[in-house]
Structure formats: C-alpha cells, structure tokens
Computed example of a mutant assay.
Amino acid sequence: MTDLTKLPLSITSFSQFAANSMIYVDKTDLVANLARFRNPFFLSRPRRFG
C-alpha cells in the first residue's frame, strides 16, 4: 500500500518538497487536454503555491 503521509497539505515551496522527499504531481499535460473543450470549466490551485 502507498504511504500517503508523504502527500503534503500545506507545503508552499518546491524546495520543501525536495528537502523532505515528498510527492509532487505535475498535471500540466492535463490542462492542455482540458483546453480542447469548448465548454467553460473551472481550475483552482492552492493559495500561495508557486
């Protein structure tokens, strides 16, 4: 089973991810797929991230 304790909930800088060997999931390619739809959609991201 996957150790979900490595999934951060309040880390706001990438350097903290790297220093603590935490999991970061890049979903940039999924945004490009969403852009192909003609209907409106809502994207959100954590506040103060990046």
Results as ranks from 00 to 15, higher is better:
15 S>R: 11
34 L>V: 05
7 L>S: 04
20 N>D: 10
37 F>V: 14
49 F>V: 03
7 L>K: 01
24 Y>N: 07
45 R>Q: 08
46 P>D: 12
4 L>K: 02
50 G>S: 05
25 V>M: 10
50 G>P: 02
29 D>G: 06
16 Q>W: 01
42 F>W: 15
21 S>L: 09
4 L>S: 05
38 R>C: 08
25 V>D: 01
9 L>W: 02
7 L>D: 05
11 I>Q: 02
7 L>P: 04
41 F>D: 03
33 N>V: 15
1 M>L: 03
4 L>R: 03
14 F>K: 07
17 F>H: 08
9 L>D: 08
34 L>Q: 06
12 T>C: 06
10 S>Y: 13
21 S>K: 13
13 S>A: 10
35 A>T: 12
3 D>Y: 00
6 K>M: 04
20 N>F: 02
49 F>S: 10
14 F>P: 00
40 P>E: 02
24 Y>E: 09
41 F>M: 05
18 A>D: 13
36 R>W: 11
18 A>N: 12
38 R>D: 14
49 F>K: 07
7 L>R: 02
47 R>C: 13
7 L>A: 06
26 D>R: 09
48 R>T: 09
28 T>S: 08
8 P>T: 01
23 I>E: 05
6 K>S: 00
21 S>T: 12
40 P>T: 01
33 N>L: 15
4 L>G: 02
20 N>E: 09
49 F>P: 01
48 R>L: 14
